[in-house]
C-alpha cells in the first residue's frame, strides 16, 4: 500500500511534465489542425543549447533555462515557417511529413555536433530528496512538478483570461469564424508556436534534469509522450491533456515498480492501444464536430 502511494506520488510529479508535452501537441493541433511531429526535437534543441552553455560557457542554471527557452522558440518558429507556412497544402499529411523530415534533420544535427554522446543536465533547483512521513520525495521530481504546475496555471490563465487566449480558442473552434471576426489566423499560429516551444523548452529542461542527461533520442521520447497524452486526454482538450498526462505518469511509475523499469514504455503503448480501441475520443474529447 505504501509502495502504491509512493508510486502514485512519483507518477503525479512526472505526469505533470507529460501533461505539458501533451498540451504542446494539443494546443498546436487545435490552432493548426496539423500534427507537429517535430515538437519533441524542437524542445530537445533547447535543452542541448542550455546544457551546453551551462557546462562550457557559464555555469548558471537560470541562464541555462533562459537559453533552453530561447533556442526552443527560435527552432519552433523555423519549423512553423518551413513545415507549416511554406507548406500550404490542404492535405494535413503534407505538413506532417515535412515536420517529420525536420525532426530527422534536427536529430542528425545533434548527433553530428555531439558525436552521439550523452550530455549531462544538472537540476536547476538543486533540491535533493526529502521525506514527508513515510513517503520520500525526489528533489528533481519535485522541482519538475512545481515547474509544470506553475506553467499549467500560466497557460490556463493565458487561454481563458486574455484576448490572446480568446483568439486561440476561436481559431481552434472554427478557423473561418475566427477570420470573420478579424483574427489574423497566421499570426495566431505563429504565436502558438512561440508559446508551446517556450513552455516545452522550459519543462524539457527539468525533465532532462530528472533523467540527469539528454540524448539525441529525447526528441522521439518527448514526441511519443506528448502524442500519447494528447490521445489519452482527447485531441484538442486542454483539461484532457492534464488528466492524460497524470494518468500516464501514474500508470508508468506503477508499472516500473510492480513489473519492471524496462516495461515502462511497453505499458505506455499498451495504454494508448487500449484507449484507441475502447475510447478513441479520449478522456475528455468531443469527437467529430459537425461545423
Amino acid at each position: 500500500m505504501l509502495d502504491f502511494a509512493q508510486n502514485t506520488l512519483d507518477g503525479i510529479m512526472v505526469g505533470a511534465s507529460y501533461a505539458l508535452l501533451g498540451l504542446g501537441f494539443t494546443l498546436t493541433f487545435g490552432v493548426m489542425r496539423r500534427l507537429n511531429l517535430s515538437y519533441g526535437p524542437t524542445i530537445m534543441m533547447g535543452v542541448y543549447a542550455g546544457a551546453y552553455v551551462s557546462l562550457n560557457v557559464y555555469g548558471s542554471l537560470l541562464l541555462a533555462l533562459a537559453i533552453a527557452v530561447a533556442v526552443s522558440v527560435i527552432v519552433g518558429l523555423v519549423i512553423e515557417g518551413v513545415c507549416f507556412r511554406a507548406v500550404q497544402s490542404d492535405n494535413p499529411l503534407a505538413s506532417m511529413v515535412s515536420a517529420f523530415a525536420m525532426w530527422m534533420v534536427l536529430e542528425e544535427i545533434i548527433i553530428l555536433l555531439t558525436w552521439g554522446r550523452l550530455f549531462p543536465v544538472q537540476n536547476p533547483s538543486g533540491l535533493s530528496t526529502f521525506d514527508i512521513g513515510p513517503i520520500s520525495v525526489r528533489g528533481d521530481y519535485f522541482a519538475l512538478f512545481v515547474a509544470a504546475v506553475v506553467l499549467m496555471v500560466g497557460i490556463y490563465w493565458l487561454l481563458f483570461h486574455t484576448a490572446f487566449g480568446r483568439k486561440v480558442r476561436a481559431v481552434g473552434e472554427n478557423r473561418k469564424s475566427a477570420q470573420l471576426v478579424g483574427i489574423d489566423v497566421n499570426r495566431v499560429s505563429r504565436e502558438i508556436f512561440v508559446l508551446t516551444s517556450a513552455f516545452g523548452g522550459f519543462v524539457a529542461f527539468f525533465i532532462a534534469a530528472s533523467l540527469h542527461q539528454i540524448t539525441p533520442g529525447f526528441g522521439l521520447w518527448a514526441t511519443v509522450k506528448g502524442l500519447i497524452v494528447m490521445i489519452l486526454g482527447g485531441i484538442g482538450s486542454v483539461p484532457g491533456a492534464v488528466l492524460g498526462g497524470l494518468l500516464l505518469g501514474i500508470i508508468e511509475l506503477q508499472a516500473v515498480w510492480y513489473i519492471g523499469a524496462s516495461y515502462r514504455d511497453l505499458i505506455a503503448f499498451a495504454l494508448l492501444f487500449l484507449f484507441l480501441v475502447v475510447r478513441p475520443r479520449g478522456l475528455l474529447g468531443q469527437g467529430e464536430r459537425s461545423s
Binding site: 484576448a163 480568446r166 483568439k167 473552434e173 469564424s177 470573420l180 471576426v181
Partner: peptide, 20 residues
C-alpha cells in the same frame, strides 16, 4: 448561420469582436 463560438460565453464572443 451566425458562426457564433458555441464553446464560449456571450461575453467572450462579444469581446472577440473587438480583440482584433
Amino acid at each position: 448561420g451566425r458562426m457564433i463560438f458555441s464553446d464560449m460565453t456571450v461575453r467572450e464572443n462579444l469581446l472577440l469582436g473587438a480583440d482584433a
